[in-house]
Design a protein around this nucleic acid. Structure first.
Lengths: 230, 230
DNA sequence: ACAAAAGTGTTCGCTTTACACCCATGT
DNA sequence: ACATGGGTGTAAAGCGAACACTTTTGT
């Protein structure tokens, strides 16, 4: 097959984490090239023989040491032919979630600096990465309300208020605690443990776990979830 | 920038049409190569300097003479590194809709055969194109219920029953005529004309038009549509 | 007159929403 | 005792679901 084509394929990831009540996004400081010293999404060129999702995982490992807990394809950017000033590059963007136990960043092998930024305070990034993030946030927002994605951003055992606050943070608005809890519990994939957590003052909170098996079972039975809130 | 990468970028389109009460998909017969004489989605390699959506439009024009009325990106296929037996090729798939006035296929310039197939009776296709179609149908199904996409598959002026039947065809199940009509009319983006259509026996039907301006206006006001039906 | 498709309202039940007080702990 | 966050129920409104007969035309 001898078609000649001079287009490069890259992947980029919008990696979300949740810490201290804030949704955060992982960024990498560019050390070389046109965008030296600018922050950018983790990502890079796909290697020959490598799958797209494999490339994302490798780049994340290399650049930050992060292993993600959930990943889905977001969108492919290639309508702006000059989105990379060096050459024609299309980028397949992914959305990924990491749970809090893995938020710690490893000193990266290729001397790039990695850092978590609050999702509502992202600097001007390299390439069209601000656009990609906007798309990622939009998708996250849309998706949490009909798929219980949020649990990948929380610890395995969490107090209900963490879930509430996560939804508040993602949706950018207040939710009604009573209605939210009633709705979530009615689905039946949340289980109460007998552990408690107390932080500072206030009544200690029961910890809950997300029962993924049960969720998958309900999902396969064709049951549709829609998480609404006042 | 001297990275060497031997990956080719292609685009493919799942183009939907609606005729005689059937949802149809446009396919092209392969004239050369490994998959000679197999049907495949319209598509091909992206040219240097060409945008992704531009490539889709060009391929559709070249292979079938079809100009689409709606197009959105579907998904990028590249996790199966061997999806194209000739080389590593990633394909950015698009979903497109054509309205009935443009369903006629032009004799194509490069002597490929183009044909509309009923969506529920697609043969075994070249590459992973059956998978791409499955994804396209899934998206179409999901999307019609929260975005009035269907109108791009109908004539400008249409009787309500066409809309009903289109939804029946896409969703693969019956809908309640009264509830459906009530809901659709309540949105306010459907306008009654004073024209009528009679075909064969039966009471003549009023024709309706979709008011895109009004829809955009309502959409921009943040009004959310969800089309449900018994 | 009959067949064929279009047009039209009402009732019931469930889901969503709105809303405020008591409980358990730390200081 | 007071501050802090956790836990809980009920009533009203709105929406979705179910359901059948009349109208207009062609034959």
């Amino acid at each position: 097959m001898n078609i000649s084509q001079n287009i490069k394929v890259a992947v980029d990831a919008v990696v979300f984490g949740y810490e201290e009540g804030q949704v955060r996004i992982l960024l990498i400081k560019q050390k070389f090239g046109v965008y030296k010293d600018r922050w950018a999404l983790p990502g890079g060129f796909v290697l020959d023989g490598e799958s797209l999702s494999g490339a994302v995982e490798r780049e994340l490992r290399e650049e930050s040491g992060v292993a993600v807990d959930y990943m889905e394809q977001l969108c492919t950017f290639g309508d702006d032919v000059a989105r990379d000033p060096r050459a024609q590059v299309i980028s397949v963007a992914y959305l990924a979630l990491v749970n809090p136990s893995k938020l710690r960043l490893r000193a990266s092998s290729d001397a790039k600096e990695a850092k978590w930024f609050p999702a509502d305070n992202i600097p001007e990034l390299a390439f069209d990465h601000n656009t990609i993030i906007a798309k990622g946030l939009e998708r996250l927002k849309a998706k949490v309300s009909y798929q219980p994605l949020g649990f990948d951003l929380l610890e395995k055992e969490f107090p209900f208020s963490d879930l509430e606050n996560l939804y508040r943070a993602i949706l950018g608005r207040d939710i009604d605690r009573r209605n939210f809890r009633k709705k979530l519990m009615s689905f039946g994939f949340l289980e109460e443990t007998d552990k408690m957590r107390k932080i500072g003052s206030g009544r200690p909170a029961k910890l809950f776990v997300f029962n993924k098996q049960e969720y998958r079972r309900l999902e396969s039975e064709g049951i549709h979830f829609e998480i609404k809130y006042a």
